[in-house]
Nucleic acid binder design. Sequence first.
DNA 1: TGATACATGTAAGGGGTTACATGATTTC
DNA 2: GAAATCATGTAACCCCTTACATGTATCA
Lengths: 183, 183
Amino acid sequence: MLKYALLGLLQYGASTGYELKQFMDTSTANFWHAKLSQIYVTLKALEQEGLVTSDVQEQEKRPDRRVYSLTAQGTQEFDQWLQTSSAELPQLKEPFLLKLFFCARLDKQSLLAQLKLQRELHQKLLHGYQTQTRAIIANVLQNAPEMERDALFWGFTLRSGELAEEATLRWLDETMETIQKEL
Amino acid sequence: MLKYALLGLLQYGASTGYELKQFMDTSTANFWHAKLSQIYVTLKALEQEGLVTSDVQEQEKRPDRRVYSLTAQGTQEFDQWLQTSSAELPQLKEPFLLKLFFCARLDKQSLLAQLKLQRELHQKLLHGYQTQTRAIIANVLQNAPEMERDALFWGFTLRSGELAEEATLRWLDETMETIQKEL
DNA sequence: TGATACATGTAAGGGGTTACATGATTTC
DNA sequence: GAAATCATGTAACCCCTTACATGTATCA
């Protein structure tokens, strides 16, 4: 899937491994992320597959950059991915739920402390969505009003994060309340 | 983390790789899962670490079973994990959001079709939580009323899934409506 | 003077999936 | 007679993380 993330981001103007990483960190990071080392490896593989090509650009006062661009085949494969609907949901792994599943063994105070910490983390994440992420999208729109349609979709992914975090916060509150009452 | 899942499940009575897999599939599957092959590999590693021990039991009319049990060290390490709170949230990867992020390129009909399919999948998952998963917990409680405290925590994880799925459904409806109106 | 930004990579190792291999018993 | 259940494992491969390696320019 990183493959498709890179092919997609290349169309939005990022063109080196380093730039792709930065772009990702300020756009898809909340639902798709990657380390630089992995990005470099994947770009190389993409080039071998013939989906991108690269050229080395020398720079003054900066290290050389390897600039990637999509090939026709790369564009085609990306578009095909966009159109293909997957018939199953990914299987999640949620470490906190795994732990909670076994928490009958744990004392009330440790439990409440861990739930409270989770609440703080999720609250902070939600707040970040409501301010930083919104600001990034608004900023792009101001500098490039022709991106309106793109920004609509970025807004959908943002909204997904907000609703998910709100639901998590409600769940944490409900769970803490039950524990207060029942244990 | 599979390590802790296995240590935890061993305390609930599952004792072979095969049983652990079955147990997982009917309890933690929605927030933690593993393939049989990986379970066998991890159990072997756990034994080398000294956290479990194993004995081969011969059976009539069935293949031999390798029966695992927790060592004192295993119990200790598990308990320590339970008590340790993690100060950061796991970074999620959500393929559907990644795709949606790039969907400005896609036509309205393909888009709505994919969103509708997602809605069906999530609706089905929610329904499964509300019926099957609830039934499994109720069933354990009926056969073993002393598990009441454990069942409370299983209920928390179930409730988390229900709220998350409800939020996702609301988001999908909202998103489809916006697309109908705006595109 | 030390940290951060820019810029690209390799290597080792961890965890996971898929495929392969075996083989008896039970159920449809 | 075929498929599913019980039961355990190995091997190849993929993706990812962490650590290592290098080097200049700018900023505090």
